[in-house]
Structure formats: structure tokens, C-alpha cells
Design a protein around this nucleic acid. Structure first.
Lengths: 111, 111
DNA sequence: CTTGACACATAGGGATTCTATGGATATAAG
DNA sequence: CTTATATCCATAGAATCCCTATGTGTCAAG
């Protein structure tokens, strides 16, 4: 509720991760930074939320990971979307549209 | 994810209830129907979610309740916003704006 | 007289996320 | 050199929020 940092809306973290990974292979730590950056510093994704989510998405077959080196020579787990992950993302995007439109209907309702 | 009924976005139920109550005094059962109706039948609010939420909002001082008769002669608990509830709602609306804009930023991000 | 709508309520559990903590490596600061 | 900061991964435990399932009672319709 405060001005400044905020948590991601519950239930949307998976979709946000899938979307960022869809922009190109990327490792976990960078995903969280990217979300923060694109959201203009609004959303924080703590590592205790991020990594369990990544494992969940991998377990469900939406992400695949392989260890590679970053530009700076560090080892990092790079994630990319599977075919199922792409389908899942697109379904989640469609669903988000419906839900946020319904939200708008209610929040703009007048007596 | 399916077409048809959906759950409310997690974390938004309190705001939706406050908003509907802000339209005028209304009892619990009708709140859930109203949310469903305004959302064009998308959102379902099961009673097991609704009533605990109403009690929570009352405990926090955002809603006040009194027993009255409905048009059809039944007893029902009519809720209205307290002053604190109005402030809370308006804060939640502002916050929702910020969050959904940040969501849009990420979901429309291109490489 | 039984089914369905109305109206309230709670217990118990599931899913998701957070806080707290841990480890390891690189780089910059002092 | 040593310390702090940033990078990168990970898990345990708790908190939050919501749902399913169940229960009570009333009223109207058939």
C-alpha cells in the first residue's frame, strides 16, 4: 500500500517469470532484476520467492534450465521456455486480460 | 484458466467487497451475487471465502454491520463502510492502479 | 414434502509467497 | 589484505489468502 516497492500480485509471479524468460534465455537472478527494472522499480521479487517458483515451473515442464557462464564468467542456470511453457504463457496472458477487465468493471461500477 | 467462471485474483477480494459495499448498504449473500453479476458472471465468490472476509473487514473496522430485513422479509446482516473503510478503499484503488500498470509494463515488454 | 434459492457460519486444508538463513565467488574499497 | 557489496543459487519454516466441505435454518414452488 505504501509508495515505493511492492510485492507482485499473488498468483501472477509464474506468469511474470514466463513472460520475462520468453524475452530470451536468462538466469534466475537476472529475472528478478529484470522484473524490478521493467516495472520501474515497483515490483520486488525476493529470492525466497523466485527460486521455488523457478523449480515449480521447471517441474511442470514449462521451463528448461542449463548451466552456462554469464558474461562475467560466473556459473548460472539459464532458463528458457519449453513448447508447453509457451502455450502456458499465452493462456495465462489471455486469462489475465479477462480477469483485469472484470476487475475494471467492478472497480468502476457506480450506483 | 478455463473459459467460464473464475476465482477472484488473490489479494483483491477485500477491495472488491469494499467497493461493492460502497455502492450502498448490502448484505453478504447479495455482495457475492453482485460481484458475479457486475463481472458478467466471471467471478465467483464462494461463501466460504465471503463470510470470513466480511468478518475480517469488520474486525479491522472497515465495515459495520446491522441486522435488518430484506425486501422479501428475511433477516440479513447489512454492511456499510465506516469512515476508515472509505479511506482504506480509496488507498487500495490507488494501489491497484499502480500494480496493474506495472503488470502491463511487464506483459507488454518486447525484446 | 422435497427441491432449490436464500442467508449465515466455521473447520480444515491447499497453494503461493515471504522471511530468514546458508553457501560460494567476484570485485571494489579501504 | 581484508572487508564490504554484489552476484548467484538454494531451502526451511511460517504467514497469508482462499477454497472445499459441511452445517444450520427459512421460504417458495412444484
Amino acid at each position: 500500500m505504501e509508495q515505493g516497492k511492492a510485492e507482485v500480485l499473488k498468483g501472477t509471479l509464474d506468469m511474470l517469470i514466463l513472460k520475462v524468460v520468453a524475452l530470451g534465455p536468462i538466469h534466475g537472478y537476472a529475472i528478478s532484476q529484470r522484473i524490478q527494472q521493467i516495472s520501474k522499480d515497483l515490483f520486488q521479487v525476493p529470492e525466497g520467492s523466485l527460486y521455488p517458483a523457478l523449480h515449480r515451473l521447471e517441474d511442470r515442464g514449462w521451463l528448461q534450465a542449463k548451466w552456462e557462464e554469464t558474461e562475467t564468467g560466473r556459473d548460472a542456470k539459464f532458463y528458457s521456455l519449453t513448447r508447453a511453457g509457451k502455450k502456458r504463457l499465452s493462456a495465462e496472458l489471455v486469462n489475465w486480460e479477462r480477469l483485469s477487465e472484470a476487475m475494471a468493471l467492478i472497480l468502476s461500477a457506480a450506483e
